[in-house]
Amino acid sequence: MNSSNNRVKKDVVVPLLVLATIFAGMLSPLQSAVNGQLGNTLHGDGNAAAVISFGSGLVVMTVIILARHSTRAQFASIPRKMRAHDLPWWNWIAGICGAMVVFSEGASASVLGVATFQTTLISGLVISGLLCDRFGIGVEVKQPFNFARILGAVCAIAATILVVSPNWSAPKVIGLAVLPFLAGILAGWQPAGNSAIAKETGSMLVSITWNFIVGFSILTVILLVRIGMGQVSFELPHVWWMYLGGPLGLLSIALMALLVRGLGLLLLGLASTAGQLIGSVLMDLLIPQLGAHVYMVTVLGALVALIGAGIAMIPSQKEAESTNN
């Protein structure tokens, strides 16, 4: 009887968690839209937009870290752990990946449209995930290329070509579309770095804060150099919601961390990807102020990206055996 009740409960709870994950996934295109409009306000300066977005997120994380003695102590241990060299150095600079994503949002999202931006970003992430699995970056068991994984990568490339195809005659737009694609490829190994730092310090909150510090520091140094060279005049925006990019990203991370416990990585990845793509298309359609035109190939490209992500997430026999053992 208990087994039957548990099955019924699971049949009800899992679909609700999937829906919650889809809505949580929609926070990513919302963040892209905010940072894109921020970059547009700053005359397309993705660097300045990324500094503001990272800065707002860092303020929130600093408050959270300082609020508890345990997280303060865990964060204070970072210099000592870095000197010990127990963790490969590249884990400590994983925040560069997030910096690249936010930079590309500020520089290109308002021009490309949220749907095109998210599709090219996710396509890059799919390919990056396959490469990380193949070379053992952040995973315990290396995953060789097989038909499903190669097909997922092909779908990702096809999705990118589809969503940028209406702009073949605009080289500048095509050039901007390369930014989120490259950011996605670079960001594929960021979760591995985040996870390693969290394990080393004993806190995912500390890991996230460190990522924000790394990204913010690098972007700020670049911006200060540009200001010193007279290449840019930096001015803070006066519209309050343009500071929400960082907090939206944090909210998405927090929700995913909660939802993964009830769904597992595979369902979470598929549902969140669906949310990102559905949300980005709806955003471009329902908010004409964003200035993006949604073509049929844009919708088709988003669908192909979702299929590619789903295929790429199918665990191989070797991975399944490792999980079962």
Rank of each mutant, 00 (worst) to 15 (best):
A320M: 13
I197R: 01
L182Y: 01
G188W: 08
A107M: 09
I22A: 03
V8N: 07
L224I: 00
G215F: 06
I78F: 12
A76S: 09
F23M: 13
L205G: 11
V239R: 10
A271H: 08
P88Q: 05
A159F: 06
F54R: 11
G39V: 06
G215P: 11
A254L: 05
L182A: 12
N146V: 01
L151E: 05
V139L: 14
P171D: 05
A271Q: 06
N324L: 11
L286C: 03
N2K: 12
L259N: 13
R7D: 14
L125Q: 14
G301Q: 01
A20E: 07
H43P: 13
A20I: 11
A177Q: 08
P144K: 00
G136A: 05
L112M: 09
S110H: 00
G113D: 03
F54S: 08
F54L: 14
G308C: 13
P171T: 09
Q231W: 11
G39P: 12
V111G: 02
H293P: 01
I222D: 07
V154Y: 09
G98E: 13
L270Y: 12
L112P: 02
G275K: 02
V260Y: 03
L258Y: 07
T71N: 12
S169E: 12
S207D: 11
V141P: 08
A76Q: 13
I137F: 12
G138D: 11
G275I: 06
L267V: 07
A187W: 00
L186H: 05
D11K: 09
V59W: 10
S4Q: 15
